[in-house]
């Protein structure tokens, strides 16, 4: 039986303003093309694989398809290209019905877009974006091999994936409610507009809710991670509120925390309050003027609204690449004699 693998390569990932304002590294498209080529090579570990590739407007996907190994069936997803995050969501919606596993090259934003519509299809997420929390910097060949093993059923998905949490947001303004969904982090920022999307100044952060936290992560999950560790597949999440201008805004004094807020920036922030949240438990902010950040990017402008955030354990099934390959090796799949 043929195994269908979806491939999303975001040409825009790793190109934002953090190359100027922080120490973020450049992820150029030649590197993405090479990584995607490695993914395709890794997929040949299993037999009879078809690859469905998200098209783009830059020519990157064309080159990936042109360079594909001859023993793979490779074709484009039939979809309208908009040169925006809608493309990743549209491709993932197609993969939800037509793929056995998906490989994503991008950052947290790209992985979140895929997570919105991918359903239960296992996802291998490779980092090519900026200060990523969810995707991992793994070799493309290794990632492709893991995707092939899980997609083909050689390693059961149930034993090789973890369900990542998400953060659901209701932005309530007088008569209307806007619903937003983040993957690892959702923040409330004191900025007037979305702008370049990046979180440029840690002092803009008012607070947020994260579905995972660790001091080894960058951004909001790193701030929360300075206080409590919360694994991606733990139910619930962590909510926190920063003390701004020396005011704690809470009954207890602020807790001073060191955190890596953006690459190259080790910040000290005063946390007025933090709370481990149960699955579905609300954590609210009243916002006069601000912006909601989702997975490290400013996404939604808010004026005079209430922002209710809650962790929800219904995110994508992420493939643990290392355990997949080790499991396959244990079963002798790498032995030829």
């Amino acid at each position: 039986m043929t195994t269908a693998i979806g491939l999303v390569v975001n040409p825009a990932a790793g190109r934002d303003i953090r190359r100027l304002t922080g120490g973020a590294s450049v992820s150029n498209n030649y590197a993405k093309r090479r990584t995607a080529g490695c993914v395709l090579a890794g997929l040949t570990l299993v037999d009879d694989v078809d690859v469905l590739v998200m098209p783009d407007s830059t020519g990157l996907a064309d080159r990936i398809v042109d360079d594909a190994p001859d023993d793979l069936g490779v074709e484009f997803v039939d979809m309208t290209v908009t040169a925006s995050g809608r493309d990743s969501r549209a491709a993932a919606a197609h993969f939800a019905d037509h793929a056995d596993a998906v490989v994503v090259l991008g950052g947290d934003g790209t992985t979140r877009d895929v997570a919105q519509t991918i359903g239960d299809v296992p996802v291998v997420s490779i980092s090519t974006g900026t200060n990523n929390v969810v995707p991992t910097p793994v070799d493309g060949t290794v990632a492709g091999a893991a995707a092939g093993l899980v997609g083909s059923g050689a390693v059961p998905a149930a034993e090789a994936t973890t369900r990542h949490g998400t953060v659901e947001v209701d932005v309530v303004r007088s008569e209307e409610t806007t619903v937003i969904r983040g993957l690892a982090t959702v923040g409330v920022l004191d900025r007037p507009f979305v702008g370049t999307r990046a979180i440029l100044d840690p002092s803009d952060i008012v607070g947020g809710v994260v579905s995972r936290s660790s001091p080894a992560e960058i951004g909001l999950s790193g701030i929360a991670g300075g206080l409590v560790t919360h694994r991606p597949d733990d139910p619930g999440g962590v909510g926190f509120r920063l003390s701004r201008d020396g005011e704690s805004g809470a009954t207890a004094p602020a807790t001073r925390v060191k955190a890596i807020t953006v690459p190259g920036n080790l910040s000290t922030v005063d946390v007025a309050e933090h709370r481990v949240l149960d699955d579905g438990e609300d954590y609210a902010f009243e916002v006069d003027r601000g912006v909601i950040s989702v997975d490290g990017e400013r996404e939604h402008e808010v004026r005079d609204g209430t922002v209710r955030l809650r962790p929800v354990s219904d995110g994508p099934r992420l493939v643990d690449v290392e355990s997949v390959l080790e499991r396959a090796a244990d079963e002798g799949r790498f032995r030829l004699g």
Partner: peptide, 20 residues
């Protein structure tokens, strides 16, 4: 430094040029 911004969003262009 080189980076790409959404040229259909005036606030993105503004912020980018301001930093530059």
């Amino acid at each position: 430094p080189g980076f790409t911004v959404d040229g259909m969003d005036i606030t993105a262009v503004y912020e980018a040029v301001k930093e530059a």
